[in-house]
């Protein structure tokens, strides 16, 4: 099973060492609207959860997204 960081690294093409919760689209060149959709879809598939449209639209950084997964009681790493 892939971890949250595995999926971040895979979709946004950054190394594991670079990943931290404060990262947002401003910091990651590959974080465009298309990759963000693919990222959310990959997380939903891997962790068997559904984000709401509101959550998808309002998250600002990786920590926000990680927080949603934790709030659903899912282990991600």
């Amino acid at each position: 099973m892939r971890t949250f960081n595995n999926i971040v690294a895979e979709v946004f093409k950054i190394s594991d060492a670079e990943i931290h919760d404060g990262l947002s689209s401003k910091d990651i060149p590959e974080w465009d609207s298309m990759n963000y959709l693919l990222f959310v879809a990959e997380l939903e598939k891997e962790f068997d959860l559904s984000f709401s449209m509101d959550e998808v639209m309002t998250t600002q950084c990786l920590g926000d997204i990680r927080g949603i997964i934790e709030a659903r009681g899912k282990k991600h790493g």
Partner: peptide, 11 residues
Amino acid sequence: RAKSESTGVLE
């Protein structure tokens, strides 16, 4: 193979 309700993404 997969469907995301929140993003409308299908695999």
